[in-house]
Structure formats: structure tokens, C-alpha cells
Design a protein around this nucleic acid. Sequence first.
DNA 1: TTGAAAGCGTTACCAA
DNA 2: TTGGTAACGCTTTCAA
Lengths: 364, 364
Amino acid sequence: MVQIPKQQSAQSTVPAQPAAPVKSPEPARPAATRPLATGALPTSADVARRAGVSRATVSYVLNNTSAVRISEPTRQRVHEAAKELGYVPHAAARSLRAGHTRIVLVPTPDVPIGPLYSAFLNELQWALSRLDYTVVQYGSVGRSGDRAARAWAELRPVAVLGPVGMGPDGIAVLRRSGARAVITLGPDRVEGAHALLTDHRQVGRVAAEHLLARGHRRAGVVMPKEPGLDVFAVPRLEGVREAGAETVRLPLAYDEQDAAQVAAQVRELGLDAVFAYNDEYAMLLMRALQDAGVDIPGDVAVMGADDLMLGRLLRPRLSTVRLDLPSGRELAELVDRLVREPDPAPESEPRNALTVTLVARDST
Amino acid sequence: MVQIPKQQSAQSTVPAQPAAPVKSPEPARPAATRPLATGALPTSADVARRAGVSRATVSYVLNNTSAVRISEPTRQRVHEAAKELGYVPHAAARSLRAGHTRIVLVPTPDVPIGPLYSAFLNELQWALSRLDYTVVQYGSVGRSGDRAARAWAELRPVAVLGPVGMGPDGIAVLRRSGARAVITLGPDRVEGAHALLTDHRQVGRVAAEHLLARGHRRAGVVMPKEPGLDVFAVPRLEGVREAGAETVRLPLAYDEQDAAQVAAQVRELGLDAVFAYNDEYAMLLMRALQDAGVDIPGDVAVMGADDLMLGRLLRPRLSTVRLDLPSGRELAELVDRLVREPDPAPESEPRNALTVTLVARDST
DNA sequence: TTGAAAGCGTTACCAA
DNA sequence: TTGGTAACGCTTTCAA
């Protein structure tokens, strides 16, 4: 849909089919007099000819428009013709005519993000499909922010979800292009968009308060070396600091070797606690610490976040922070609501979308 | 794109804008004489008027068509006008005219599938975006197989990936709708599609051979209770059987409680090995077995599949079967190749796309 | 070098 | 009840 190949200009749509056996110079309604190209899909005009009615009638019947009443025999003929010909409506033509689409744009994160977010996206897509929207995944691929907005606007989406790093101008372009709902999912709200605030500082704060309550003072904070995760990692770190804990950054790549090094670091620095960004990083580091002879939680307390099943499998069971995003179904319903009746004042409702719960287990 | 709301027929595109101040009855070229609706995006005609040129010239300049040469001053004026007006081309109109799209359809799995597959999909989307395709996620949502094909064909995708449960008729519809590449990713090939065979029996076979080699005879095979996973679980089970192992089905839900029950079952049945579908299920069950006092691998050997990091964190380290799918980048390149030069005889090349490697660690 | 005009497939208005 | 027709926004001959 986005771009057609610009290199090759001359291209015949149906090369197999020679010229029509009917009279060639017939400029009026050529589509209606076109022979049935067996190679390509038929158009509504083909169906009309086959059924012996007009294109309008075909449209009425196939969309069963309630405004007009079509006689039963005619309906039959149209339906038969459509079935015989294997008619499939052309979405682009339809939406061009209609002036709007049912496309919901969902940006693909540039880098793989955790399983929690993947599951969320999956559920969202499923829910949107059920509501008869077409989900289009669109990677920002280099061009970022407002430039991406222009590329997205080409599709004339009816809703756009979670455009990150997009300024008010980008949002404005999307709105002008017909987007009746623009929903951001992130730490701060953007002019013109309906914001679902996800402040990840809460995560760090809750974790740190728990650690402090259990008497730990010097906390290491794991920062994933994997690119793209800073969006979450940095606010979580800030949250830990805001809670009053003394912190040390611990950059950690997601592999065992690096984990062993960081484990050694933890001992050298004399840390008595680690908040590890994530259950996955937490488990990796906890295992490395145990392999190095560190007692958890006796020598060092370890905390994760996300409450993955994983955290319940190792011993000691991992203390963690559970994150509750709105479910995909809920978000899909929000989209649908906004599409039906657009938000008059999007910026007035900076809802907090992220609730955070401490799950204290045995690793702290 | 797919369907416009059918309930409300009367809808004004730009309700805020009253009638044009110019003369109303002007049926010839109304788009060109339309006033600049500030609420909506401008069309190429608006750009043309602003630049004082024809729509054709605008198209030439903006797509910098090499066939025609436009004077530099004109180019400037067009570009300026486009920028000032905030022109964004209309993808639907463009592809309607062009007769084809750059849409690649990627079906959303109906149920959440493992992290391995999620990562694969993510990478694929990224790679396709880089090649300037638009990735559209399409859930089959109820309507299955050939019915889904018709819904998909509405978008006139240039390529369709991994349509599961689709017969030759469905494929044919897609091809007629303009899909130059239809690639199935599954156990058996379908007439008319380019098949990347993923035979998961290999997985079970490799696992079973390993267990047999280590002297285990009576193997339990975990079958996830979560719906939708049978597509993989059943072939894996078959593979185990084909290798000659005596098998017992062990249905298991992905929670600790059910795992404890299955662990008890394993003891009662006197099994000496378990192939657990997946590393995740394997770890869950292994933990439950350990909690029940079973020695791994002394009493019972446990094997997983997928080679997740997870398997290296618990003790004993999990033996597993590594799966190598083609990378997202490779698959994207295959799509691109097939789009450029469609496969003359798709069915002739039933490549095996899944390579499988034993990773023997300490749990067996 | 530029412009006029046809046409892609669809739907909605207005007549008949 | 049905059909003609214009229009959605764009590209691309053909003609000037």
C-alpha cells in the first residue's frame, strides 16, 4: 500500500490476456465492457454484467444497504454471479471512495522488548481484529518522530497507537490525515494525543522501598546493555534513586559470561542488594551470584520486575514488582470508543495506565 | 482499509468547512477548484494549484520520474508548495492506480506462541520494513482457511506469509488477487504456495534418540493444555514415538499447581524420562519434580526444546533441542526475491526450513 | 517541458 | 426498485 516500485514504469496488469474480442474503441465505460480476465480478480462491474444489472445494484446487494430495497430475484442473481466469479472487493478502492479506513497503526518496537510487552501486543492485535480493524505494524526504520508520522499518514489510519518520540507536529499530521484516535503509551503526554501514562519510575520506587524496608542500603541497579531498553531502564533507575536508596549502575548484557563478571563486581563493591531491571536479568544475575558462592538473600538481596513465571522456578523464589498494563482488550475498546466519538480535549485526561504491585518472595 | 462502518451512510468528510466561496456548480475538475480545506490534508491537485502547475507535473516532481525532465525552477515551486501545504500522498489512491501494493500479510497467530516465534516475527517485520514493504498483521479471527483468504485478498497483498490451514483454493484466490509470493511455513506443503517445511517431528525424534541413548525407556511427553499449541506438540509427540520410545501423554497447564500434579503422576507411572515440549514447560515440571524429591537426572531425565536462556539458569542445566528457523532477514529476502521474479513452479522446491540440534546438558 | 484527460474499483446521489 | 453518473486521489500515456 505504501509505495509502489518506482523503477519500472511500464507494466501490464494482465499480460496473458490478449486484446478484447469486443470492439476496441469504446472509451465509455471500458471497465464494464472489459472481457473477463481469468487471470485477475473480477471487479464489481464484471459481477454486474454477469448478473445483468448495474454496478450500483451490485454494490447495494453486496453491502446490503438498508436505504434501498432490491427485489429478491435480483439479489439472488447478484450473489450467484459474485460467487461464480469469485468476486473479492478491493479494499483500497473502497476506502478511497469512503474517505477513511479501518486501519490501526501499531508501531513495531525497533528492538525486541520483553515477553510481557510481546504478549500485550499480541492480545491487542487479536482484540482489534475482532472489532474489525486492520492492524498494520509499522516500523519507524530510521526516520524518527515527525518524519515517521508523514510515512504513517500515507495509509490514512483511523487510529494510531503509541507513537514514541513524536512531537505535536507529527500528531497534528496524523490527525489531519484522518486519525480519530492517537494514543500514546509512554512516560509523558504529547499535545493532541490521548495519553496513557506509563511511568516506570514507579517500578523502581516500589522495589527500592521494599529493599530499604528490609534494611538494605547500597543497591546495585542492573542496566541492560541491550540497546533500546533504556527507555524503561532509566526511569526505573530514577525511581530507585527517588526512593532514597544509594545506587550503583551495573551494566549487564544478557549472557552468562557477563553475568559472572557483574556478580564479581557486586561482591567487590560490597553491595547488599540488587534491583535487576527485570526478572530475566535478575534470574541471570542471581544464578551467577549463587555460582560465585553468594547467599541470596543473606549476603545480597535480589529483586526483579515483571513477575514472570520464571521467577517462581529458581530458588529462592524471586521477589519482584508486578506490572499491570491495561489489557489488549481494554485498549482495543478505548481505540474503538475514540474512533466513534473522538476525544474533544485529549490532553485533559492524563490517565495513569500502569499499576504496580510489590510481590515479596524469598530473594529479599 | 478493510471495511467501513456500514451503519452510518451519511457522513460529511469535513463538517467544519462550509460551502466553498467559489462558484458552486462547477462539475468540471471540482478537486482542482476546491478551496484549501485546512482541516483535511491537501491533495496533489492542491499542490498543483499552489505551484501553478498541473497535477501531472506534481506527480512527476514528487516521484522524480526519470522519463520526463522538469525544469529546476518548477521542481522548486512544487516542492515548496508541497512542503507548505504539508502534502502527504494517499497510499490507497496510489495503489489503486498502480494496480498493486507493497503489502505483505503476516497472519497473527490466534494464540500466543512461544518467545522464540515472537522474536522471529519481530525480526521479520523489521527486515520487511527495511525493504519498503508494509507489514499487515491479520488475525484469522474465526473464519478459517479459504474464507480467511478472501478477507485477506481484499487488501491485494503482494505477498502472504504462512497462511495455515489454507487449501489450494485459498491460495489460488490470493494469487489471483495479485500475491506474487505465497509462502507457507508449516508441516506440509500446499498446492501453489512456496513451502518452507517445518517438520516438528524432527524435534521429538532427536530428543527421543538422545533419551534412548542414555538408557531411558519409558518417556512421558508433556502436552500443553494451552490451546493452539497442539500444532507443534502433536508432531513432536509423533517424533518421539517414531524414534521407538514408549510414550505416555502428560497434559500440563502452564502453572505450578498443575505441574505438581503431573510430577506426582510421573512418579506413579514409573517414568524414567520426560520430554516436555518446550524449555518453559520442562523447567516448570522439573522444578515440581525436584520439589517432590525426585532426583534429576538420576530418577527421571528431563528434556526441553527451543534452547531458551532459561534452561541454563536452573540446576541441573536443561538438556534441550535447539531449533533454527531461517532468520527474519533471510525470509524477508526470500519474499523480496519471489516478488521480483515469481516462482514458476512453487511446489517443486519443498525446502526443509527447520534445522534441529541436540544440546545435551545435565538434566539427562 | 508541460497539460489535458483517462482510468484504477468503489459507493452515493439523483433520476427514472 | 433500479440505473446512470460523478467523485475519491493518484499516475501515465498522449498531445501540444
